[in-house]
């Protein structure tokens, strides 16, 4: 009696998993197939879009790498991403720790206040922020984005990390202080290793946000050499009403697939990171 129900349960489980796999993987498959398609194949509506009706070609990758600034955009995006991650960590870790531990009940309220800041959309903020950027002489430069992105990432990260630091028993750092460490060294040796999931979540969130952010990148940077991937790719590959679909797909896949892989490697930690922040924050 037991075995059939177990088989049904298993079949149901893997069936649901298969549906989700298809749901999340099919856009990538479509992107990858499209990027190698010839124009004649892609633009004939009678053709099946999911298979190669004509032999694949590398010419669109050639266009992307050799006739656009794609590599420059990539370098810019990675540069901005890394710097914004560093700035975010340097500011949000101490902020979150002090709000979680030192300020008492006001820490909670301040934390909620900081999180509310994150909810103000960039479409509302880019006008006042453009005045700030111009007055600092950073317009049309990567550095404007390095300055502005932390306004989104720091509030969210602070709030996320606060949940982490709160969930670590105070006893642990007090034990470290009795064991001969200062507040700072007990934080580094005991609290930080236990908050790694949160830090990984912050890095992932911050980096992907700088990769896909569009409004600020479009508003503050106009010269092609300073653009990020999110703005550079569509502006160079959508010329007038001509969409270079295959090259667009190639650009999207090249950026998205490594990010997806990294997410998968750290999946457990990320889930722990985001859910913990959500429950305890």
């Amino acid at each position: 009696m037991k075995t059939p129900t177990r088989w049904i349960k298993r079949a149901l489980f893997y069936g649901v998993v298969a549906v989700f796999c298809f749901f999340s993987a099919s856009p990538f498959m479509w992107m990858i197939i499209t990027m190698f398609k010839q124009d004649k194949d892609l633009y004939r509506s009678a053709n099946n879009p999911f298979i190669f009706n004509l032999p694949p070609t590398l010419s669109h990758l050639d266009l992307l790498f050799n006739n656009t600034n794609f590599l420059v955009f990539m370098r810019n995006s990675v540069f901005i991403g890394v710097l914004v991650v560093i700035i975010t960590l340097v500011i949000s870790i101490p902020a979150a720790y002090s709000l979680a531990r030192l300020v008492g009940r006001w820490g909670e309220r301040a934390g909620i206040g900081i999180f509310l800041v994150y909810l103000v959309p960039p479409t509302l903020l880019f006008i006042p922020l453009s005045r700030v950027v111009v007055s600092l002489g950073l317009h049309n430069s990567l550095w404007s984005l390095i300055l502005v992105y932390p306004t989104i990432t720091i509030p969210f990260s602070t709030w996320l990390l606060m949940g982490f630091f709160k969930s670590i028993p105070k006893d642990l750092e007090e034990a470290a202080r009795v064991d001969g460490y200062s507040r700072l060294t007990s934080f580094i040796k005991v609290i930080m290793p236990l908050s790694m999931s949160g830090v990984v979540a912050v890095i992932a969130f911050t980096f992907t946000l700088t990769l896909h952010e569009f409004v600020y990148a479009l508003a503050f940077v106009t010269s092609s050499a300073q653009r990020t991937i999110s703005v550079g790719v569509p502006t160079e590959l959508v010329r007038g009403d001509v969409f270079y679909w295959q090259s667009l797909m190639a650009a999207a896949a090249i950026v998205a697939i490594p990010v997806g892989l990294v997410y998968n490697i750290f999946l457990d930690r990320l889930v722990a990171g985001f859910t913990m922040g959500a429950v305890k924050g």
Partner: peptide, 10 residues
Amino acid sequence: AMVFQSYALY
């Protein structure tokens, strides 16, 4: 040296 109620092992 102190032993905490929760033991506070790392």
